[in-house]
Design a protein around this nucleic acid. Structure first.
Lengths: 250, 250
DNA sequence: GATAGGAATTCCTATATATGAATTAAGATC
DNA sequence: GATCTTAATTCATATATAGGAATTCCTATC
């Protein structure tokens, strides 16, 4: 179903991202629960490719800057990064809250851009994280905007696992929540994925594809500022929807 | 000897770094000369992990910012990056030429830091690249600084493949070149790896390990400025050698 | 300088994976 | 709207790989 070695390759880099210092083969094997020989072969491959280097022969190793170089080359040309990100940053600055750009991915929502709040109490999440569709404001906004028949196919597969006391647990509740969003003009997640966390979301088409944008943060702040947050979100979505493909020839 | 799937995982990211736009499974499989099904499984894994995302279902995909996030987390804490890089940048600014920090890796030299010249005609190379030991000024500086017996072991394994008209082709010539360097106080590579490219290098110990630093560029400029280049390099090496472990507890 | 302990590295084979072929789905064309 | 084309996805099996055990190589300690 999934390629083990690829997973492990990513594990290695993510492990370095956490530890942030050199490590030996034996220790890395322990940390990742791998047989030493397996870990050794993997490390050798990454060293051969210039992604890791030994500080001394047979000693500890660390990533070179090559991964950073590759990531930079990739990142600078994402159409979304160029055109949409600045607008999301403006929204973060206007509201002070964390802003997320998400997209349907299988039966979840993947977080593509996260512009973090600068406030002490804030919502924090990793880029690339995939969250439950039924407990996400972005998810609701996107599902509400989908065509009848792909939505049907999607909903047929949805489970509604309990994440908090307020998690939506079945399709009827979910449809009701979507409808409330339609009437209200925006979709919410009030403590449905984590306690005290609230999000408000809208969907938007970018280059023909469907995305969701939300504001997330502590429920208390959202209670106080809801109206202005929603207005700011709506304004942003209008601007994002107006972005044209000018810069993205192919 | 090397793990195929890990290689392919890196291939995918490097491929995106070159192409810089979304691609479908079939096209990626073609580009990497993989069976579609193999490519598909790999992509699914990377998507599951949040490193790739589909712009639309069954359509083209592109890396998320997760790789960038990981690379950033890794990069900011390399002891060398923190302590040594600024000194190398100063050397680049003082001379105008490309500055490289390298290290022995197997029977080659791996490029760990590359501070590129800003001049129109410059030496350009990718971080993580591994170059031939016998045709590298950094290589000579490092080998010259090694202890007798590890050096013997290393030299016993060295081949001397021809890269240009001036490449050193055997051990005798190599030893002679090392000796000239010792007398002169610095080591050189004059068109031995690529035509018209010249480098001057010194070795330096950082946190107890052996590295090499060089200046590389077009031979014509080096002919004109050799003395000042070498002086600047020596001054930099002095400063780098004085860097202490203060910031690198473990 | 010898010895011991621990790690890196190699080696062999059970096992997981890669892949060619088959199937299903989407989208283009008439 | 039906047919055709192309691509995505699944599946069974030959094949490459993972991992336990053995070996070699360091390095710390006596």
């Amino acid at each position: 179903m999934t390629v083990r070695t690829a997973d492990r390759t990513l594990d290695i880099f993510e492990n370095f991202a956490h530890r942030q210092r050199p490590i030996t083969v034996a220790d890395l094997a322990r940390e990742l629960s791998l047989p030493t020989s397996t870990c050794f072969a993997l490390v050798r491959t990454l060293v051969d490719r210039g992604f890791l280097y030994y500080l001394r022969p047979r000693g500890a190793f660390y990533p070179t800057r090559r991964l950073g170089w590759v990531a930079e080359a990739i990142g600078h040309h994402v159409p979304i990064a160029q055109n949409v990100r600045p607008l999301l940053e403006a929204l973060r600055d206007a509201t002070g809250e964390t802003v997320i750009l998400g997209k349907l991915q299988g039966q979840g929502v993947i977080y593509l851009e996260i512009i973090e709040s600068r406030l002490a109490i804030r919502y924090t999440m990793t880029v690339g994280a995939v969250r439950e569709l039924h407990a996400s404001s972005i998810g609701k906004a996107i599902v509400a905007a989908m065509d009848e028949e792909p939505r049907e196919r999607l909903l047929a597969k949805l489970k509604y696992p309990k994440l908090t006391e307020h998690t939506i647990r079945n399709r009827a509740q979910y449809m009701k929540s979507l409808d409330e969003g339609r009437k209200r003009g925006y979709w919410t997640n009030v403590g449905e994925s984590s306690p005290d966390v609230m999000g408000v979301a809208l969907s938007v088409r970018i280059f023909g594809d469907l995305y969701g944008i939300n504001l997330v943060g502590p429920q208390s702040r959202f209670d106080r500022h809801l109206k202005s947050y929603v207005d700011a979100l709506k304004a942003t979505v209008r601007k994002v929807g107006a972005v044209r493909m000018a810069l993205c020839s192919d």
